[in-house]
Design a protein around this nucleic acid. Structure first.
Lengths: 261, 261
DNA sequence: TAGTGGTCTAGACCACGCA
DNA sequence: GCGTGGTCTAGACCACTAT
């Protein structure tokens, strides 16, 4: 229980265990944000608890208030805390920060601590279907890396991941792809998408999907498409992912519009 | 006047039509952000275009650089622009800002300019199924407002919206609900959720959904649940919405993780 | 009235990319 | 070297909330 309606003089703020290393290359606001986030995830700061006031935090760590505000702004953006003028900043309800912070796909099996695995079904380089080139806004003649993977959890097939890469990556090896995430491999090669757009929908499974995922009759697919761009706005990666709808849901934290007229 | 293509040799920055009213109660950072966003949506600033530099903007409107940065930060958060150190800030690829900015449900029919409508199928007050009370973390005996609506576009049924409200709202009238959005009505009563959590999944349609939405055989449902909390962390609204999967997709802009390692 | 978050200033130094 | 965005400071005044 985290009752905080309490005393007016004694502020019921919880002092999270935080320390700031000014010599670290990690920005101060990031250090503070991470440590507060950790305190929330570990339950040291519980839903409803007040954070220490901004001025107080600034004094305690001898940093400026704008820097403290920036830290807390990070937590607000993640939905971990709620700011209220004249009152204080409190930890959000548990449901909001129980799962993955960053609005990504939530897998209730990996959450249970099981082992994921990947099988590469296809890895090729060449021209692709016009549909794909169109989605990526590329000339249909452009050769692309085409990649199809089956994602398993605890040896049960969970998703089919199809990706196309407009990148010079002839060195991609099957063994790498089975042991690392695609984005991890791209990062190793210095490739960081600047923005990406995802869309989430659903449809009936194709017969291939039925077979590969071992679905029951009439079971739908959660399908997620993603298109990632480099810093120059060129599309570099397109993905079509099919998830078992009985195992996956997508989670999003929605923040309120401040006033917005 | 501080140029737009001035500096080194040819800096292709576009000077958007912006003016700032310092006497307005609207914060300066918000004014600037909105006007830049409008310029992007209207195509005055096109994908790939450089924004004026932060220092230049600050000088031009006689505001401080932190304020300018905050404005641009808003656009970054919406995925409208990409910042690059040492280079500048550019407008994101078109695909990223073509649709609804705020990561909400995109309806390709309303986008075509057609008229939405709402039919109230049920409006009641009393005890609810234990499942609902559990989702809202309330005592099962708590009486709630239960609301079921059918959303139509161009007279075609598009979604079934089921909502439960832990609020003293005995004055909710069917006529209001058919002419206004639920959140609009809540706002009129001074109720603003502080945080909300949405999850998106899919499943087969029930027979009721089949009938109400006029679905074809085997057609899945995109189902979205949402749970909204007030500032004290109390759940105030829970919703289960079933969308036709052939008409709706959910869109999310994913921003890159800065470094995070 | 006292304390909170919300906005804003006028600087500063830095890391980075590019010509 | 120069301009860019990234971080940070040490204040200020305001609006709001609770008592």
């Amino acid at each position: 229980m985290t009752n905080n309606q309490g005393s007016p003089y004694i502020r019921p703020a919880v002092q999270a265990p935080v320390n700031v290393d000014r010599n670290s290359p990690v920005p101060i606001y990031h250090q503070l944000a991470e440590q507060l986030a950790t305190a929330i995830h570990e339950g040291i700061l519980q839903p409803g608890d007040f954070l220490e006031g901004e001025v107080s935090l600034a004094r305690r760590f001898d940093i400026s208030r704008p820097t403290v505000r920036r830290s807390i702004g990070v937590l607000v953006a993640r939905g971990l805390v709620v700011r209220r003028r004249g009152v204080g900043t409190t930890v959000s309800p548990q449901a909001v920060h129980r799962r993955s912070d960053n609005g990504s796909l939530f897998d209730d099996l990996t959450a249970a601590g099981l082992e994921p695995a990947t099988t590469v079904l296809r890895l090729a380089f060449g021209q692709v279907e016009p549909r794909i080139a169109h989605a990526m806004d590329l000339d249909p003649a452009t050769p692309l890396v085409a990649l199809v993977r089956l994602r398993l959890v605890n040896q049960v097939p969970m998703a089919i991941l199809r990706n196309w890469l407009a990148l010079p990556l002839r060195d991609l090896a099957v063994i790498d792809l089975e042991e690392h995430g695609l984005y991890e491999l791209l990062r190793q090669r210095g490739i960081w998408p600047a923005v990406a757009q995802q869309t989430i929908g659903s449809r009936s499974a194709t017969s291939d999907e039925h077979r590969l995922l071992g679905l029951g009759r009439g079971e739908p697919i959660l399908d997620v498409t993603q298109l990632a761009f480099d810093t120059d706005g060129r599309p570099i990666e397109y993905g079509e992912h099919s998830y078992r709808s009985d195992r996956y849901r997508f989670e999003v934290i929605v923040k309120p519009i401040p006033s917005a007229a």
